[in-house]
Design a binder for these strands. Structure first.
Lengths: 179, 179
DNA sequence: GTTCGCATGTAAAGAGTTACATGATTGT
DNA sequence: ACAATCATGTAACTCTTTACATGCGAAC
C-alpha cells in the first residue's frame, strides 16, 4: 500500500464532511482546522489529483458555462478504508512546535528587559485574539444539534486550543512580572 | 543586508553560549531548545559555512592527529549585531502548531470511542514524559547561580513548556471522560 | 568484535509556501 | 473602474529530514 502523509489524510477526512472541491476544502480548513493544521492550494490540488489516480477518491467534473469547471471529489470505499486505517495507527511523534517567541526569549540576555517585555506583550495580544477566534468558532458549532455527528469532536479540538492558549496567556503575564 | 531564517538565528544565538562546533550546537539544542526548536546536522553544517562566508562568524580549525578536525565557530561583531537586530524585530506569525492527535480526534466520528480513548491515553503518556523531561532540565539549570546570565531566560521557556503541557494533560483527562 | 560517542559533511527526497496565470461574476 | 469571491492549477523556491560516507578511540 502507498504511503501518505498526515496532510493527505486531513484532506481525505475533510471529504467526509461534504466539502467536495479543492476550494471547499481550503475554506473549511481555514475555518475549522486552522489552529492545528494549515494547508495551501499548492498542496490541495496535487493531493486531490493523486487521491483520484490511486483510487481513494473519484471525481465528478461539472462544466458550467462561462465559469471554470467545478470538480467534486468523493471518497471511494478504498479511501474510507485508508482513512480508518490511519486513524487506528498509533502516534509516531509528538513533534515539538516551533515557537519564535520562546526562541527570542531564550536569548533574552542579549537585549533589554523592556525589549523582552514588549515581545511578551505582543505575543499575549496575539494569543488573546486567537482565544477569541476559538470562542467564536465554538459558538458557531455549538448552535445546532451539537450532540451528534462530527460536532462533539470538533468541540474537543477547540477546547484544546482554548486551554493551551489560556495557559500561554497566563505564562506571558507571569513572565512579564519576573523580568 | 542578507536575509536569514529563524533557524539561522537559533544557531547564531547558540554560538553566544560557548558551544562552538556543529556537534556542540546539536548537543546543546537537543538538551535545551528541543521543546521549541529542533534542527538536524543537515541544516547546521551548511548554515555554519554560510555564516562564516558572510562574516557573521569566524572559524578556528583544530587539526588533531587521527581524529577528524574540530572546527570552532565564534561570532564576529557583525554576527552579534545581526542577532540583536533579529531579537528586536517584531513577531511575524504565531504559526499554528501541527497536531496529529487533534487531527485524528477531529475525525473521531469514523472510529470507535475506545479508539479515540486510546489515542488520548497514548498522547497523555507522551505529554507526561515530556513534562518530566522539563522538570529534569529545570533542576539542572536551577542548580548553580541561576539568577545570572542566560539561566533565568532558559527557565522561562521551560516554565512555558510545563504550563502548556500541563494544560494539554488536563485536556486529555477531561476529554476522555466526555467521550 | 560490536556498539557508542566524537566529529565532519553531502545528496536526495519530501514537505510546504508563494507567486503566478486565467477568467467569470458580484458588489462598491 | 476596482476589488472581492469563486475556482482551478503549476512552477519555483525554501525549508527540513533522512540516509549515506568516513574514521578514530573507548567501553562492553
Amino acid at each position: 500500500m502507498e504511503k501518505y502523509n498526515d496532510t493527505t489524510y486531513a484532506i481525505l477526512g475533510i471529504l467526509t464532511t461534504g466539502n467536495r472541491s479543492g476550494y471547499d476544502i481550503k475554506q473549511f480548513m481555514d475555518q475549522s482546522l486552522n489552529h492545528f493544521w494549515k494547508i495551501s492550494y499548492g498542496q490541495i490540488y496535487p493531493t486531490l489529483k493523486r487521491l483520484e489516480q490511486e483510487g481513494l477518491a473519484r471525481v465528478e467534473t461539472a462544466s458550467r458555462e462561462g465559469k471554470p469547471d467545478r470538480k467534486a471529489y468523493f471518497l471511494t470505499s478504498k479511501g474510507e478504508g485508508a482513512l480508518k486505517d490511519w486513524l487506528e495507527t498509533p502516534l509516531q511523534n509528538v513533534p515539538a512546535e516551533r515557537n519564535e517567541v520562546l526562541l527570542k526569549l531564550f536569548f533574552g540576555r542579549h537585549q533589554s528587559k523592556e525589549q523582552s517585555a514588549s515581545l511578551l506583550k505582543e505575543y499575549k495580544q496575539k494569543l488573546e485574539a486567537q482565544y477569541e477566534t476559538y470562542e467564536q468558532i465554538e459558538m458557531m458549532i455549538s448552535g445546532d444539534g451539537c450532540e451528534e455527528g462530527d460536532a462533539p469532536y470538533w468541540l474537543f479540538t477547540l477546547d484544546y486550543g482554548k486551554r493551551v492558549t489560556r495557559a500561554a496567556i497566563d505564562w506571558c503575564e507571569e513572565t512579564m512580572k519576573k523580568l
